[in-house]
Structure formats: C-alpha cells, structure tokens
C-alpha cells in the first residue's frame, strides 16, 4: 500500500455515528493481514497472534468530528449541533455534506455585509444556519439527527506535507494499517491487537469497551497532536517532519515511554517528546485505567490546523511512526523490561 494514497482514501470516507464507510474500508484491509472482527458501531479490532499471553494494544480512533442536524426549517435551512470540537468562527461560507437519505452538499450562511456591525460574537453553533438550497424538499431528504461532515479534499504541499479533513485520526489509522501489512506473516514476540475505536471525539467512549474486550498488558494510543505554527509556542507543539511525539506524563507508563525512546535511538528513527503534566486528552487516559490497569503511552503525529478540514501533516512522520511501532513490537515491547 502507498501511504499517501491510503491516507487520502481514508480521509475521503466518513465514519461517525451510523455512517460506517471509513470503518468498513479499514476492516477490509485489516482482515487481509490480521484476524479481524467488527465490534460495536464503528470499532474494528484486528489480532495478530504471537503465541503467548502478552498482548500489546495499538489504538487509533476511526471516528471524526462532525455536526448533527437539530432543526430543519420550511426554506431548507438547517440548525446543527457540534459532535466534537468545532471552531464555529470558521464555519461561515464553509462547504459541508449532509448525510440524509442521500448525501447532499450545503453551505454555512455568512452574514451579509450590510447586516454586520463588526462586533459579532460567536456564542453558539446553532446561530449559524446551514443552507441546503433544497427549500421545502429538505424535509423529504434530511431528518433531525442526520450527520453533517466537512467536504474538504486532500492535497499536497511542499516537503512531503499534505492537507485534508479527518487526518485526526485517520493519520494514525493509516499508520496502523501500514503496520499490519508489514507485520503480516512475521513471527512476533508478543500478541498485537489493532484497535480502530469509535467515539473518541465524543469523550473517548469507544475505546473503553474495546480495551475491555482486548484486555491488553500494555498499550500505545496513536493520535495527532499540535504541530508548529504562528502564535503557537514551542512548549505546546511538536514540529512537523521531525518524527512521532513520544508522550511523557504522570498518567502514562514511564517504562513504555523509555522503551519507545530506546528503540527509536537504537534504530535511528526520528522522534520528539511530548511532555504533559496530567492526563493526555487521548484514548490513553481510558486504556490505562482499563480493568486492573494497563501500562500505556501515547505516540502522536504532529498536525497543524487540528479539527479543520485542512489539517496538515508530514508523510515522513507517518513513516517514522510506523517504523518505530514495528521495531518496538519486534523488540517485544516492555514484556521483558
């Protein structure tokens, strides 16, 4: 598989609520290389057997930020609620897709200039209406509860950087699928469970049941984290193209953090550190307190413009993350640490 093609394909598909396209596609790939099963809703799990009882769980969430229709008026304008963190200031004039009986394009209203005072305040997403241009027919196609997703396309910038929607967290899904392909047929020192989990954006919900199902000994949550940009200080971001960010936090396992660093150094794989003072805001927070507790770490891909439909990342970082995880597994994780 080509890493860019896979990322772009996963970005083009949706996975939120009852929309399972990205999840179905990932399941198709995962079942080629692992013993795969569909769990609830969107969650997909793939197992590779290392012929022992020590299991490393690798998690990437398959769901994406979205919006949900809460009202439909007579003229085909919709009111929506947020399903995940949406920067409502950036919605005016944005193109989206409404997933009704069929998928239809729509545009968020921008206040016309003669009605703006320049002192606008964005209090609530419900104030910004969505124009379907379907008039009274909107109600035949769209129902309250239908999902709305960004419609942005992927593209390439300089230096192997790419942009697109839902890279949070399809970037990590891409890494795990590439990794599954790479591990396929290899003799493994430990069991590996690939978890593509649901509902991270709604509060790390899907991973709870998935972690219970897998019952891992240790785990790594692969997600995106803030990439460098103007107005973002060095201590709150990683730098694009400098490798995956290994998490260090009171809520994470030092053993796993240290082993990841050791493996990266040994194999000359680029990496950077992400120091957090408490919980991580990723699925790692949930996995680590699964059942009787799991040694857990985060490995993050630096990403600019998080939660927009033009998230930017470096394909080099995806390669680094994939390689680091491969070497880490072949080294047996922290089984014998």
């Amino acid at each position: 598989m080509n890493i860019k093609d896979l990322l772009f394909k996963l970005s083009s598909l949706d996975a939120v609520g009852n929309i399972t396209a990205a999840s179905d596609f990932a399941y198709g790939i995962l079942s080629k290389y692992t013993t795969a099963e569909k769990m609830d809703n969107l969650t997909v799990i793939g197992f590779l057997d290392g012929k022992n009882d020590y299991t490393l769980m690798l998690d990437a969430h398959i769901d994406q930020i979205a919006m949900v229709v809460t009202d439909i008026d007579e003229n085909g304008f919709l009111t929506v609620g947020a399903a995940g963190g949406i920067d409502i200031r950036t919605l005016p004039s944005r193109s989206v897709l409404v997933h009704g009986k069929k998928t239809v394009p729509a545009v968020f209203c921008a206040t016309p200039p003669h009605l703006t005072s320049g002192e606008e305040s964005f209090e609530n997403i419900s104030e910004i209406k969505l124009d379907t241009s379907l008039g009274s027919n909107a109600k035949d196609i769209i129902s309250v509860g239908d999902f709305v997703t960004f419609s942005g396309k992927c593209g390439e910038l300089q230096n192997n950087l790419v942009f697109g929607r839902s890279f949070d967290d399809r970037a990590a899904v891409t890494c795990l699928l590439m990794l599954a392909e790479k591990l396929h047929g290899k003799k493994l020192p430990i069991n590996v469970a690939f978890v593509l989990s649901d509902s991270e954006e709604l509060g790390m919900r899907g991973v709870r049941t998935a972690a219970f199902r897998v019952n891992p000994s240790e785990a790594i949550a692969i997600d995106v984290s803030f990439g460098n940009g103007i107005g973002i200080s060095d201590d709150e971001c990683g730098t694009l193209s400098k490798g995956g960010m290994i998490g260090i936090s009171p809520a994470l396992s030092k053993e796993v953090s240290n082993k990841l660093i050791e493996v990266a150094k040994e194999n000359e794989i680029p990496y950077q550190l992400e120091i957090m003072s408490s919980k991580t805001g990723t699925n790692a927070d949930m996995i680590s307190i699964n059942r009787e507790g799991v040694k857990t770490c985060t490995l993050s891909i630096p990403l600019r413009n998080m939660h927009s439909d033009t998230e930017i990342l470096s394909l080099d970082d995806l390669e680094s993350v994939c390689e680091l995880l491969y070497r880490y597994i072949m080294a047996g994780g922290v089984l014998n640490a």
């Binding site: 920067d87 200031r89 606008e120 964005f122 103007i230 107005g231 413009n305 939660h307």
Partner: peptide
C-alpha cells in the same frame, strides 16, 4: 492556517 480551537481561550473562541 490559524491556531486550532484547542489552543484558544473560551473568550477567543467567541471573537471573530
């Protein structure tokens, strides 16, 4: 590009 929503204060999130 711009700062992501996660790095904005509650006040900044409302300002144009």
């Amino acid at each position: 590009s711009s700062k992501p929503i996660h790095l904005l204060s509650k006040e900044e999130q409302k300002k144009p």
